[in-house]
Deep mutational scan, measured.
Amino acid sequence: MEVRTIKVFTTVDNINLHTQVVDMSMTYGQQFGPTYLDGADVTKIKPHNSHEGKTFYVLPNDDTLRVEAFEYYHTTDPSFLGRYMSALNHTKKWKYPQVNGLTSIKWADNNCYLATALLTLQQIELKFNPPALQDAYYRARAGEAANFCALILAYCNKTVGELGDVRETMSYLFQHANLDSCKRVLNVVCKTCGQQQTTLKGVEAVMYMGTLSYEQFKKGVQIPCTCGKQATKYLVQQESPFVMMSAPPAQYELKHGTFTCASEYTGNYQCGHYKHITSKETLYCIDGALLTKSSEYKGPITDVFYKENSYTTTIK
């Protein structure tokens, strides 16, 4: 009895394709271990004539594949690729409408935090270190965002349907971005203890939790000093293409032309909904596939993004 075979390709990165001759009487799992086709788990399936010449994702289970996976995804987590594939199996079914010149995501599976993050990423200057993220990001900007969303979920250790947080998501993504040249110098002034300067680099240099107003941050924000008295913390120097200011959701007025974009969060910790506000020729609110415009805006804002380049204080 002759062994019926077909020729397929296996890959971990969709760049390096490895030619395989597979036995049609055995499952993919018996031949390769966990195997995925377009995100779908085909591990328990036997090869079919229609699979001839198709590319299958496999887990990096030998040295060659491990090197290829690390170079593309910059992670050695053995569960990463499987999590990416199972997320992709959902995100490829989502709709990605162009809204006001940006790629958004039609609401499904509690994905409003991903839509808000995706919209924000198209408006701030950011370059990702893992080629996987950078490639998928370019495709997302062009309207094909399924891979990018699935990668975000995998890097953030999230599953489809789980509630997510924009600030946490951005923080994970910033860790995989090139923020080497970003720098922030802060000064804390206390009447009792004097003053202390701190220099922050990388992710810490672009994120701040405690106030939404970048102007206020430049002037000074009140913080408790270690001595128990009130101290003032203010920005001395900022070198970065953008800054992200966050605070627990509270009524906040966004003035046209003073910011790049913002995240609105309605609801409580267990259950809520994100919308995205962007400042173009007027203010726009993007909620999944829905767009509304207004000249002014007041609502429960939790993150505001500002364009920056270089700032030095005039406070002496």
Results as ranks from 00 to 15, higher is better:
Ser279Lys: 04
Tyr306Arg: 05
Glu168Pro: 05
Ala146Cys: 06
Thr120Trp: 06
Lys229Gln: 09
Glu144His: 11
Phe148Pro: 02
Glu204Gly: 10
Gln238Met: 04
Gln230Ala: 08
Glu68Leu: 08
Gln237Met: 11
Tyr214Lys: 05
Pro60Gln: 04
Ser240Arg: 04
Leu17Ile: 08
Gln31Pro: 00
Tyr172Gly: 10
Tyr214Leu: 14
Arg141Tyr: 03
Glu168Leu: 09
Asn147Asp: 12
Lys307Cys: 11
Lys275Tyr: 02
Thr120Tyr: 05
Val12Ser: 12
Gln98Asn: 09
Tyr234Gln: 07
Glu264Phe: 04
Gly299Ile: 03
Asp135Met: 09
Tyr73Phe: 15
Lys54Ile: 10
Phe217Asp: 04
Glu215Phe: 01
Tyr113Lys: 04
Pro224Asp: 12
Arg83His: 10
Thr192Tyr: 09
Asp165Leu: 06
Asn178Gly: 06
Asp180Met: 04
Cys193Met: 02
Met26Asp: 11
Asp62Thr: 13
Lys275Cys: 05
Leu81Ile: 08
Lys7Trp: 10
Leu59Lys: 14
Cys149Phe: 04
Met209Ala: 05
Lys293His: 08
Val304Phe: 04
Thr159Asn: 08
Gln197Pro: 07
Thr260Cys: 14
Asp180Ser: 14
Trp94Asp: 01
Lys201His: 13
Leu88Cys: 07
Arg167Met: 05
Lys316Val: 13
Ala115Arg: 01
Gln237Ala: 12
Asp135Ile: 09
Val3Leu: 14
Lys280Tyr: 05
Gln230Trp: 10
Cys190Thr: 04
Ser263Glu: 04
Tyr84Glu: 00
Arg141Trp: 03
Thr75Trp: 00
Val243Asn: 05
Val243Gly: 06
Gly82His: 13
Leu121His: 03
His256Leu: 12
Cys271Glu: 15
Leu151Thr: 01
Asn147Leu: 01
Met24Phe: 11
Arg83Lys: 15
Gly299Thr: 04
Ile152Ala: 15
Gly161Glu: 04
Asn178Gln: 06
Asn178Tyr: 10
Thr169Arg: 00
Ile277Tyr: 07
Tyr284Glu: 09
Lys201Leu: 08
Tyr172Lys: 15
Ser171Gly: 13
Thr198Met: 14
Glu2Cys: 09
Leu163Ala: 14
Val42Arg: 03
Tyr208Ala: 13
Gly143Pro: 00
Thr19Arg: 12
Tyr297Ile: 06
Ile124Trp: 04
Gly257Leu: 03
Pro97Phe: 09
Pro34Gln: 04
Lys219Thr: 11
Gly39Tyr: 08
Trp94Glu: 01
Leu121Tyr: 02
Leu119Arg: 05
Arg184Glu: 09
Thr312Asn: 07
Thr19His: 13
Asp77Leu: 01
Gly257Tyr: 00
Leu118Ile: 09
Leu59Phe: 13
Asn110Met: 02
Val243Asp: 06
Leu179Pro: 00
Lys233Ala: 14
Thr10Ala: 09
Tyr306Phe: 04
Arg4Ala: 11
Glu296Asn: 10
Lys218Ile: 05
Pro130Phe: 00
Arg83Thr: 03
Thr302Lys: 02
Thr211Met: 14
Lys229Ser: 13
Pro47Tyr: 02
Arg4Gln: 13
Gln175Thr: 10
Gly288Ser: 03
Arg4Asp: 08
Asn61Ile: 11
Trp107Tyr: 15
Lys307Ile: 10
Gly220Leu: 03
Glu2Met: 10
Lys201Tyr: 10
Thr76Arg: 13
Pro249Met: 07
Gly257Pro: 04
Tyr284Pro: 07
Gly101Phe: 00
Met85Pro: 00
Tyr306Met: 03
Gly288Phe: 03
Ile223Glu: 13
Lys293Val: 12
Cys193Gly: 03
Thr211Tyr: 02
Asn147Met: 08
Met207Gln: 15
Thr313Met: 15
Val221Asp: 06
Tyr28Phe: 10
Cys285Arg: 07
Thr226Asp: 12
Asn309Pro: 05
Ile301Trp: 04
Ala289Phe: 06
Lys127Tyr: 12
Phe32His: 15
Tyr84Asn: 01
Gln20Asp: 08
Ser246Leu: 00
Val22Ser: 04
Asn147Ser: 12
Leu254His: 07
Thr302Ser: 11
Asn14Trp: 01
Thr278Met: 14
Gln230Leu: 14
His18Leu: 09
Val160Trp: 04
Tyr311Gly: 05
Tyr306His: 03
Ser263His: 12
Asn178Pro: 03
Leu173Thr: 01
Thr313Pro: 08
Tyr284Ala: 06
Asn178Ser: 14
Gly210Pro: 02
Gln123Met: 03
Cys225Leu: 02
Met209Val: 11
Phe70Pro: 03
Leu290Gly: 14
Cys149Arg: 00
Val67Asn: 12
Asn100Val: 10
Glu253Val: 10
Arg66Pro: 08
Ser246Phe: 05
Trp94Phe: 04
Cys193Tyr: 05
Val21Asn: 12
Lys127Met: 08
Thr35Gln: 01
Thr302Pro: 05
Asn100Arg: 13
Ser50Lys: 14
Gln30Ile: 06
Cys156Ala: 11
Pro130Gln: 02
Arg167Tyr: 09
Cys285Glu: 12
Asp63Leu: 12
His256Arg: 14
Gly272His: 05
Val304Ile: 14
Thr116Arg: 04
Pro131Thr: 02
Thr75Val: 12
Leu37Gly: 05
Gly161Asn: 07
Leu121Ile: 15
Met244Ile: 03
Cys227Arg: 02
Asn268Leu: 07
Pro241Val: 01
Lys255Leu: 08
Thr76Ile: 07
Val166Ile: 06
Gly194Gln: 07
Leu291Thr: 14
Glu144Trp: 04
Cys285His: 09
Val22Gln: 00
Leu37His: 10
Tyr214Phe: 08
Trp107Glu: 14
Lys158Ile: 07
Thr260Val: 15
Gln270Phe: 11
Glu52Asn: 12
Ala117Glu: 03
Glu2Gln: 09
Lys316Phe: 14
Thr27Ala: 09
Asp180Ala: 11
Val304Lys: 03
Phe174Ser: 03
Gln123Ser: 06
Lys158Ser: 02
Leu235Asn: 07
Ala140Pro: 01
Gln216Cys: 07
Thr199Lys: 08
Arg66Ile: 11
Ser79Arg: 11
Thr302Asp: 05
Gln196Leu: 10
Gln222Tyr: 05
His273Arg: 15
Ser50Phe: 15
Glu125Tyr: 07
His74Cys: 04
Asp303Ala: 08
Tyr172Arg: 13
Glu52Lys: 10
Cys261Ser: 04
Tyr57Gly: 02
Asn100Phe: 06
Asn14Arg: 14
His18Arg: 11
Asn309Leu: 12
Arg184Cys: 09
Ile124Ala: 03
Thr278Phe: 10
Lys106Tyr: 09
Lys93Leu: 12
Gln230Pro: 13
Thr282Met: 12
Met26His: 15
Asp38Trp: 11
Ala132Val: 00
Leu119Ser: 02
Glu68Asn: 15
Thr278Cys: 15
Ile223Asp: 12
